[in-house]
Amino acid sequence: MKDFLFNIKSGLKNHNYIFKFKLIWCIPLMVILIGFDWISKAIVVNTMKYEGNNATFIPGIIRFNYIINPGAAYGMNADNKGLAITIATLVTLLLIIVFIFLKNKYWLIPINLMVAGSVANLLGRAWAPLTKDGISGGVVDFLEFEYAYSNFIFNLADAWVSIAVAIIFVIFVIYIVIEIIEFNMRKKDLKKYDFYCDIKYRKAFLFESYWSKINNKNQEKFSYKDYLSKNKQLQKEWKEYKNKE
């Protein structure tokens, strides 16, 4: 048990969290998205009539319809506020943990959007007005699709999460295509595949090395210009290798 705890502690200490990348790119974007959501909710609360001010936003697609949703995203668990808040809190904590440990810049994009949407809605419950039934802790929703079969009313935070899900789907498709390409490459030309893997590994290592918050004493320190130059050089190496064939 002692060795197990030591391994966990050592793993957490040595993990590359790429905090520099998250502090420079991810956190500011997250703050902006949360800010947009809160500002939009504040404008709706102060300018629109509750459940009585339907107005077209994008003709034939989206309209405004201000309500207070005591449930989760898109009205789920609306009849159980406690369960909705508990699930929202647990999901938010899980997403934050994933965000902290994740170091793939492509997966960080949708996770960043999910954290922004989840945090915005969770914190928004603290100041949202009461529902018409006098229930507190709800979420301000105001966007509704104008389709006859649509009963969903949502907000920008919900939209961030939906966009994140769409991006995850696209990334999955891209990864599948890449896996197929790599499989064919490995099958046809093992030498070319090995060189490709080496370039891929070196680019990943370069990214993690530069975007770490604090460089290791034994690690080479370089500027952002140097980082871009080294990354460009790796792309050039791969291009030149392919052109030789």
Score class of each variant (00 low, 15 high):
residue 162 S to N: 05
residue 126 A to R: 06
residue 124 G to L: 14
residue 134 G to Y: 13
residue 164 A to E: 00
residue 154 F to P: 07
residue 198 D to H: 06
residue 176 I to N: 05
residue 166 A to C: 14
residue 119 V to R: 01
residue 161 V to E: 03
residue 108 L to M: 13
residue 169 F to L: 15
residue 169 F to K: 04
residue 114 M to E: 13
residue 186 R to D: 05
residue 82 G to I: 14
residue 191 K to I: 01
residue 84 A to R: 00
residue 209 S to G: 01
residue 92 T to Q: 10
residue 95 L to W: 04
residue 199 I to V: 08
residue 189 D to C: 10
residue 82 G to H: 07
residue 121 N to A: 06
residue 101 F to H: 02
residue 70 P to N: 04
residue 134 G to K: 14
residue 154 F to N: 01
residue 190 L to E: 02
residue 156 L to H: 13
residue 194 D to W: 12
residue 197 C to T: 02
residue 93 L to Y: 07
residue 190 L to D: 03
residue 70 P to A: 14
residue 109 I to Q: 06
residue 114 M to I: 15
residue 70 P to G: 10
residue 71 G to Q: 11
residue 123 L to G: 10
residue 137 G to D: 03
residue 134 G to F: 13
residue 179 E to K: 15
residue 204 A to M: 03
residue 137 G to L: 14
residue 108 L to G: 00
residue 138 G to M: 07
residue 70 P to R: 10
residue 156 L to S: 03
residue 136 S to L: 10
residue 84 A to F: 00
residue 76 M to I: 15
residue 156 L to R: 08
residue 73 A to K: 05
residue 85 I to A: 12
residue 192 K to P: 00
residue 155 N to G: 09
residue 173 V to K: 11
residue 147 Y to R: 04
residue 158 D to F: 06
residue 102 L to F: 08
residue 201 Y to E: 10
residue 143 L to E: 01
residue 131 T to H: 13
residue 116 A to L: 03
residue 83 L to T: 04
residue 146 E to M: 13
residue 174 I to T: 13
residue 126 A to D: 05
residue 170 V to T: 11
residue 138 G to L: 09
residue 109 I to T: 01
residue 120 A to V: 09
residue 116 A to R: 06
residue 163 I to Y: 06
residue 146 E to A: 04
residue 202 R to N: 07
residue 197 C to W: 05
residue 124 G to R: 04
residue 129 P to M: 14
residue 134 G to T: 12
residue 111 I to Y: 04
residue 93 L to K: 06
residue 168 I to K: 04
residue 126 A to F: 12
residue 173 V to C: 14
residue 122 L to I: 11
residue 155 N to W: 07
residue 198 D to W: 07
residue 161 V to C: 11
residue 160 W to I: 07
residue 202 R to F: 10
residue 175 Y to W: 12
residue 209 S to Q: 12
residue 93 L to C: 08
residue 141 D to C: 11
residue 191 K to C: 06
residue 128 A to M: 15
residue 170 V to A: 10
residue 165 V to E: 00
residue 163 I to D: 04
residue 206 L to E: 00
residue 208 E to G: 07
residue 187 K to P: 01
residue 124 G to T: 15
residue 205 F to V: 04
residue 173 V to M: 15
residue 158 D to M: 07
residue 207 F to Q: 08
residue 99 F to N: 03
residue 192 K to F: 09
residue 109 I to W: 06
residue 122 L to Y: 05
residue 78 A to Q: 01
residue 167 I to W: 00
